[in-house]
Design a protein around this nucleic acid. Structure first.
Length: 759
RNA sequence: GCGCGGUUAGCUCAGUUGGUAGAGCGCUACAUUGACGUUGUAGAUGUCACAGGUUCGAAUCCUGUAUCGCGCACCA
């Protein structure tokens, strides 16, 4: 008898939740359980994906749904192929992103800042928010069918990961790769923290380009878009071979610039372009990275004239205490009044803004922690091609060699060029942040160390300051821990191995993981599937961290998916209100339909457009599969499914061959990570070949055929349906699992762990 | 400035070593009360951005141009 469910159209909403709970109860998301229960062989090859942990900043969006779909499809496929398949889930504390989000809420609702609340209370609020986000995110992931091993779930800020972070920091500190130093860094006045170069977003804006002289008697004209910084100038740099200026090189001048006495030395430096502006550059060492470098080369002093709140800290009532933009106007007015202004020109320029807060970056000299990417060290153990154990290398070389040597393959491959290009230009990574939510820097100071955020000009590493880096606070009186926290990408960089038991599972003698530990079995992981926008932030940092700490690679393949856009190709955003909520999609069309709509035709690296029409099409498809199943069952009621049936007609043998080729091709495409083609292929076969042709042709055979013909065709339909449900399952897990449970050939087994057809 | 992509049917996009152009959606006509509210069959629409070159043969390889986009840097 046919189950009554099948007589009605497929209804995903009443099905999907029940199916997910059944999977979860089975325990088969955990590869170790699969081995225990004999589902997979105990010596099966592992297949591992570590989930890029979603930020606990709110809810999942369509991009997350895309990521989950691609990964779940790969995971389900490999699980069915008999791999020891692990999909390790987790969430990311996302330091600045989360804290600034909560700060924004607090400011809006209570009008308070983080300093009003204090460190402890703010952290309490952030943790509460993070917990809520986490819970929402997990339930959303389940709605999309994600078959992760929840027993191994991790959080970038939990205790185990904190232990890993402290361990990692200390060993990089001991190797001399993490250092503290005074440099011009990217200061975000809005977020009140430094950020790394990669967290800057450039916005093109119009600006005035002023050309002027410091004073009437000053011999050289200079240009700038930021006159307010000129009160901090200590030199004018010209090109050594610029005949216009050679006579002045080496001379020094004292001038009073808008009430501020400044001392300017004329220097010659190769970095100055003769043809830009006047060919002379006013050097402001404290507020420009380039100028800082020039100043270092020429032993020039630097004078900080802007503070952490973007206010002037020098001058008289005209500029002192004023915001930089106001001060700029004052100085421009003064230049005009004094007839020092030569010209004003409107130019478009890139303004540096902070990714998370939108604040305009103010370069400031600050004492911060850095990871030195160009500094040589000895790597004790290495499995990376081209890097010998015990050789002297740099972190940059680890990042380069791991990809260059072919151990890590990036898809699409042209992104490796972008990757190398980025490495070439890479500078030291500033890892300290003046925010409270995150991993506290495991360093303690005593004696002359002054807590930051005082309005002191420069904190320094005096010889009187004792510095201690360790896993725990040092013994003795008077130690104070560094107030700062680490860049969130520091902990994410450890993600593939910190989630698998590092560092506890490392054997310190061999430098390798203990035999039989998770780290030993499941690392390196197979595929890192993530968005191309975090290639540098995350992918590169994981390669760096894994190479340094365990001498190997974090993953073998990097699959970079594109950005999910709306039907018109616009990014989905709150302000445009063009976002599609993946949960609404699951409600309205079913998660299966949403998954297919995201996958089909979405090649790696290419942005993908999604519309309700496309999703609707795949809801129809789910129902089509439902109806195919009903047809097959209804028309084979007089026959019993025979697993070992041999008496095929010649016509059916041909169809089986075609079908086998089809499955072979599908398998190959999945193995080659061509998910966008594989998903379309399975759709094409089921609808156009199987439903439209084979089923139509079966009607007369089943009605008027000979006994043998009828028998063969009925068995073929049943066998085909079985295979169709299996090969469609990784893509559309819910509807296929539900149908499977209604089939005569399912034998009460779960489709999720059924064997992929071997041909 | 350095680097990387895209340009194929009305729309969204495939096209895997060079061999007479593909899919979905949409459109047109016909059929169908049906396993299918969500069906089937047939059909139309392409100088594969443009111009050269290599080749027996180019959407595919090379050179150049246009145009859209992305990354990095500069931003005195």
């Amino acid at each position: 008898m046919i189950d009554e469910k099948l007589l009605k159209p497929y209804d995903p909403t009443t099905t999907e939740k029940r199916i997910y709970e059944m999977w979860e109860d089975s325990g088969f998301f955990n590869p170790d359980v699969c081995i225990e229960k004999g589902i997979i062989a105990s010596d099966a090859k592992p297949y591992v994906i570590t989930l890029p942990p979603p930020n606990v900043t709110g809810i999942l969006h369509m991009g997350h749904a895309f990521m989950l779909t691609l990964e779940d499809t790969l995971i389900r496929y490999h699980r069915m192929k008999g791999f020891r398949t692990l999909w390790l889930p987790g969430t990311d504390h996302a330091a600045i992103a989360t804290q600034s989000r909560v700060e924004k809420n607090i400011s809006k609702e209570e009008g308070k800042s983080r300093y009003d609340l204090g460190r402890e209370e703010l952290l309490r609020r952030v943790n509460e928010f993070a917990q809520n986000s986490h819970d929402t995110i997990l339930s959303q992931m389940k709605i999309f069918g994600s078959s992760c091993d929840w027993s191994r779930e991790a959080f970038t800020l939990d205790e185990k990961r904190n232990f890993a972070v402290r361990t990692a920091f200390k060993s990089m500190y001991d190797a001399g790769l993490i250092t503290r130093g005074h440099r011009v860094v990217n200061w975000d006045p809005k977020g009140q923290t430094t950020i790394s170069d990669d967290e800057i977003i450039y916005e093109e804006r119009k600006a005035n380009f002023y050309t002027f002289k410091y004073s009437k008697d000053f011999p050289i004209t200079i240009s700038t878009t930021r006159p307010e910084t000129k009160v901090g100038d200590t030199a004018v740099a010209v090109h050594p071979e610029d005949p216009r200026y050679t006579e002045f090189v080496g001379k020094e001048y004292d001038v009073v610039f808008c009430g501020v006495p400044i001392h300017i030395k004329i220097i010659a430096d190769n970095s100055v372009e003769k043809d830009f502006g006047t060919g002379a550059l006013g050097v402001t060492p404290a507020h420009s990275k380039i100028d800082w470098e020039i100043a270092k080369r020429h032993n020039l002093p630097y004078i900080q004239v802007i503070d952490e709140k973007s206010r002037m800290i020098v001058g008289d009532e005209r500029i002192l205490g004023k915001k930089v933009l106001e001060a700029r106007e004052e100085i421009v007015r003064w230049l005009r009044e004094e007839n020092l202004m030569i010209s004003e020109e409107e130019v478009s320029q890139n303004v540096s803004t902070a990714e998370r807060t939108g604040g305009i970056i103010e370069p400031l000299p600050k004492l911060q922690w850095f990871i030195a990417v160009n500094k040589e060290f000895t790597i004790p153990y290495s499995e990376i091609n081209g890097i010998e154990s015990g050789s002297t290398i740099t972190l940059k070389e680890i990042m380069r060699k791991a990809v260059e040597g072919g151990q890590i393959e990036i898809l699409p491959d042209y992104f490796s060029k972008t990757y190398f290009h980025w490495i070439d230009k890479l500078d030291d990574w500033c890892i300290s942040r003046q925010i409270w939510y995150g991993h506290r820097i495991p360093v303690w100071y005593r004696n002359k160390f002054k807590i930051k955020n005082e309005k002191s000009k420069i904190e320094n590493t005096d010889s009187n300051t004792e510095t201690y880096c360790g896993m725990e606070a040092p013994e003795g009186e008077g130690w104070a821990q560094d107030e700062d926290t680490l860049d969130t990408w520091f902990s994410s960089g450890l993600w593939t191995f910190s989630t698998l038991g590092w560092p506890q599972s490392m054997n310190t003698l061999t430098g390798k993981p203990e035999k039989g530990s998770d780290l030993d079995i499941y690392h390196p992981t197979d595929v890192l599937e993530t968005g191309y926008e975090i290639l540098f932030f995350w992918v590169a940092r994981m390669i760096l961290m894994t190479g340094f700490h365990i001498g190997t690679i974090p993953f073998k393949k990097v699959y970079l998916h594109g950005t999910v856009r709306d039907a018109k190709g616009r990014k989905m955003s709150k302000s445009l209100n063009n976002g599609i909520d993946p949960i609404d999609v699951a409600d309205k069309f079913g998660a299966d339909a949403g998954r297919m709509a995201l996958m089909v035709g979405s090649a790696p690296g290419i942005d993908t457009k999604i519309s309700e029409d496309k999703i609707k099409g795949y809801k129809h498809f789910a129902n089509k599969v439902w109806n195919i199943s009903r047809f097959v069952l209804q028309n084979t009621e007089d026959f019993t499914y025979d697993e070992n049936f041999k008496n095929w007609t010649e016509g059916d043998i041909k169809l089986i061959e075609i079908q086998n080729t089809e499955i072979e091709n599908l398998t190959q495409e999945l193995d080659n990570l061509k998910i966008h083609i594989a998903s379309d292929r399975v759709y094409q076969y089921i609808w156009n070949d199987f439903a439209a042709k084979i089923i139509e042709d079966s009607k007369p055979i089943l009605k008027d055929g000979t006994i043998d013909e009828k028998n063969s065709r009925a068995q073929f339909l049943l066998h085909s349906l079985r295979k169709i449900l299996i090969v469609l399952h990784p893509f559309m897990p819910f509807v296929t699992e539900e149908l499977w449970s209604l089939m005569p050939f399912s034998k009460n087994k779960i489709l999720m762990v059924e064997k992929w057809p071997i041909i």
